[in-house]
Write a protein that binds this DNA or RNA. Structure first.
Lengths: 278, 278
DNA sequence: GCGACTTTGTGCCTACGTTCACAAGCGGCT
DNA sequence: AGCCGCTTGTGAACGTAGGCACAAAGTCGC
């Protein structure tokens, strides 16, 4: 067979490549025909689509903002508008976590927040370890409380001897060789990789060794991990390239075609009053 | 009661909310009888699924690595393994951009790189402006050349008077009020928002005013933009929450149920050779 | 207490993305 | 030269996600 297979990417048999769009819902062998219409409470968050989970996180943020402004209840129409999705999708997303709305009225902000937090596992804190204390690592370490509470950064790692022990955002930096020990001690559940690409896989391996099963990877590398580990990647270059693709598409698409509703020529692409509202 | 999200959420009629998973293929008004009898055949070549575009960017990076190691040709099997996808998907993705492989042999690395760059619009440089020079902004400004060349950061903005004129990563910081002028002068095509959430929408508005049609948003806010503008968002909190969801699912899923094939404690991550082959 | 109105929750249908499987095409071997 | 085996490119099957539209269910007004 092909000459592939020796030592490279495939050299690690027990691992599976990690893609961002990994399966989230357990394979779920197509249940014996959806014959279980009983939307009982018993049927846990069994099959929430990944895309829905991502949106739930957005809803949660919007809801938190509403709570701060003392909004007590909200309709799917309002919430969906604020979250940038259509209302049917929002209702379906919410239906995945249960029925907490009141027909004819809407949803109670407080209740919805609690339920989304429950489903997202935010009721118990998740310790985060950041590896690679460069520019990005610094930014992440200081990000601190995120949108309120939730993900305390409890460990920082780097290889630079000069950084050892130096506190960043209140946490002293440890050497990456200590990842297993420190992560275990601090019960880290989520590892964030912000190292240069060359070091990413090695760091990832150490995190996995330490028992970390969820990794957020900022390094532009495709990590190889055991299939029990969940990896999400945030890839700057990819994001920019996707945008670049759109620019390109626009460039050799719009000019010839009149379809564009607004004059795109370098002028104000904005219809009136795009100015800051506030 | 349902006091609606007054000022903030619902106040901007002429805008469309931007979601990450935006439509990439032309909107295609398919539904609603409309006056367009032709379903669309000519628009053919331009229908690359967004997901495929994201993967193409990954392939490009992998291919660049291969070129550096003097690999001249590669099969779909090898490339897909290195990119973490299955080979059929890879071939289909490549087929969207044309037929550049040789049956029985594989793809020429050089050719593939050129073609992907062409499709992603990387042949012409895209000027990037970064707004919000905090920790993250610094990191972005210094990120510089990304995976080789491609996206020169040519403008930086902030509101902090102390930063005005201070060079970060070689570029002096300007005031956000100058966004329209500076962006126009430097032909910025991509704007990156790395400001605190409260400032994000205002900054976004200014970028749009300046004619920027592609925005990468790091602020945890749902931006409202005209539909001609493409927004992608990178949301740390959402990513962490998605991972948290996985942790939670695992916690009340695995213990009771078997599911876990391997003992998770101290997995064998086999930290051997992280190296990739030549 | 009852009807009308409002908004949720969801079944169904469409579209999209992924995977499979195989014919077509190409190079190498004999 | 002609056959053989390998790998691409893609049509079709499959599964998932999105959106519409409506019945269910609750509130408010009278």
């Amino acid at each position: 067979m092909a000459q592939r297979g020796q030592s490279d990417a495939a050299g690690r048999p027990p691992r599976a490549p990690a893609e961002n769009a990994a399966e989230i819902t357990t394979p779920m062998p197509a249940i014996g025909g959806n014959g279980m219409p009983a939307p009982g409470l018993r049927d846990r968050a069994r099959a929430i689509p990944e895309a829905a989970v991502a949106r739930l996180a957005v809803y949660l943020r919007v809801l938190s903002g509403m709570r701060e402004q003392a909004v007590a209840s909200v309709s799917s129409e309002e919430l969906s508008a604020a979250a940038g999705v259509n209302s049917a999708k929002l209702r379906k997303d919410l239906s995945y976590i249960g029925s907490y709305g009141t027909r004819g009225v809407g949803y109670e902000v407080e209740v919805l927040i609690d339920q989304i937090e429950r489903v997202l596992g935010l009721t118990r804190e998740q310790s985060v370890a950041v590896v690679g204390i460069g520019n990005l690592g610094h930014a992440l370490a200081n990000y601190g409380g995120f949108p309120g509470r939730g993900f305390p950064v409890t460990a920082l790692f780097d290889v630079d001897p000069d950084l050892m022990g130096v506190p960043v955002g209140g946490i002293p930096v440890d050497h990456i060789d200590d990842i297993p020990a420190v992560c275990a001690a601090r019960e880290v559940t989520i590892g964030v990789i912000a190292t240069p690409p060359a070091a990413a896989q090695a760091v990832c391996d150490r995190l996995v060794q330490a028992g970390v099963e969820c990794i957020l990877n900022f390094a532009p590398v495709v990590l190889q991990v055991p299939e029990t580990v969940e990896v999400r990647k945030v890839d700057l270059a990819v994001e920019l390239q996707i945008l670049s693709f759109h620019v390109a598409r626009r460039a050799d698409h719009a000019p010839a075609d009149d379809a564009t509703p607004a004059p795109r020529v370098d002028g104000v692409a904005a219809p009136r009053g795009v100015v800051v509202r506030r």
